[in-house]
Amino acid sequence: MQQDVEFIEAYQESDALLDWLKLTQIPKFSVASLLKLQKKHGLTLSQLLLLPAKQLEQLGFNSQQVEIICRPDQNRINTSLQWLKAAANRFILYFEHTDYPQLLKQISSPPAVLYGYGNYKHLSRHQLGMVGSRNPSTQGKENAQRFAHQLSEQGWTVTSGLALGIDGFSHQGALLGKHITVAILGTAIDKMYPKRHIKLAETILASDGVIISEFSPGVPSKPENFPRRNRIISGLAVGTLIVEAAIKSGSLITAKYALEQNREVFAVPGNIHNPMATGCNYLIQQGAKLVTCIEDINEEFRCVNLPFLNAKQTIEQKSSDQSLASDKLLDSVDFEVTSLDLVAQRSGIAVEDVMSKLLEYELCGLVSAVPGGYIKLGEK
């Protein structure tokens, strides 16, 4: 008897999945379109897909849509099912699935289907999106990795787009402590992009992370698909942190999506002369919260049940670091590359003593040696 129940449940699950795979083929027809149609006519998706052409036309479907509904591409469906069955760590979540992320359901254009690797239940964890430039400064790279690591240490799941630059460093920062991180692809689920991050993707999955895409196996890559995935990054998260970005960038598109989705937007301020900081500075002017430490983020989510560090401890640590970073030597190091000779000249300390002290500060995480000198990193 129990086996019969399991068989029926498995059949119903498969039947619903097939219906949603068919829906993804209908041109210019989204989840929002379906919900609108259901509200007006009380039709379920399975009922809609069984309607004859004439009734579909009466509901407002055009000839191309009618053709797809009546004769879906079975090869595309088979490709998705074959991909799903090829390995145990793969999944397909459709909009009405009980484990489809609730936060993502709330956005205006949720993906009808999510294809993924890993444990899909992690998609319902408390997530913080992190995005930024594909060509970040040394400071931007360090900020991304440091913020991601500290956020992960306190229980946040860091979500980003697996792209080069800030995205990659954000994932790496989360992985420093073997924490879970979620990556959203802008390509088909079976095409990891960029190829330079294939190893990073493997590490994410080996650390119990998740990689998802709304694009089915075999779908050709298109430039317009990358901005589309940004709404998923912000949609899965309660807030998005822009680490470093230019005015015209995909990161600001993500921030725009986050605002439209009524989610928090955070930005790390940057040097006014750095083109890669103009986007963050602009967002702050427009009302995004300026972030200098993770407590600036955490204080916006006091009601979120996470193992946060004691706020007082965090503030005291910040104060202690700032005190240390205000001595004469560190005052001589800029947040941009500062040569060793210039540090010695500004501080009035002998070069050999400067080198020794800066090595100590580098071990403390207050400065970083880079080609041409040192940069100040800020509080750890």
Rank of each mutant, 00 (worst) to 15 (best):
I212K: 00
L164N: 07
H171K: 09
G165C: 14
I166T: 13
S160N: 04
L200N: 12
A183D: 02
H171C: 04
F215N: 00
K199H: 13
K199Y: 11
G168E: 03
F215A: 07
G177M: 09
G173N: 07
E214Q: 15
A163S: 10
I189M: 01
I180D: 01
V210N: 02
M192W: 05
T203K: 15
I212Q: 02
T157Y: 10
E214G: 05
K191H: 15
Q172R: 14
M192N: 02
L176N: 12
A174N: 05
A174S: 11
T157I: 15
G155C: 11
G155Q: 13
A201N: 08
P194W: 13
S207I: 06
Y193M: 07
A174E: 00
P194T: 08
K199M: 14
D208V: 06
T203S: 14
T159Y: 04
T187Y: 02
L200H: 00
K199V: 09
I184A: 00
K191W: 00
F169T: 04
I204R: 00
V158N: 02
H197W: 04
A188T: 07
G173T: 10
S213R: 01
A201S: 14
G161W: 04
S170H: 03
G165K: 09
Y193I: 01
G173S: 02
R196P: 00
L175N: 10
T157M: 08
L176I: 07
R196M: 06
L205M: 13
Y193F: 10
K195T: 09
A163C: 13
P194R: 11
G168N: 05
K191T: 14
T159E: 06
F169Q: 06
P194H: 15
S213L: 03
A206D: 14
A174M: 09
G165Y: 02
K191E: 10
T181L: 00
L175Y: 05
D190L: 12
K195S: 13
P194C: 01
A174D: 04
I184L: 06
T159V: 10
K178W: 06
V182T: 09
A183V: 02
G168P: 04
L175S: 00
I189K: 02
I212G: 05
S213T: 03
K178V: 14
I211L: 13
D190C: 11
I166S: 02
H171V: 10
F169M: 14
W156S: 06
G177R: 11
H179E: 12
D167Q: 11
G155P: 12
L175F: 09
A174P: 09
H171F: 01
K191S: 08
T187I: 09
S170G: 09
D190T: 12
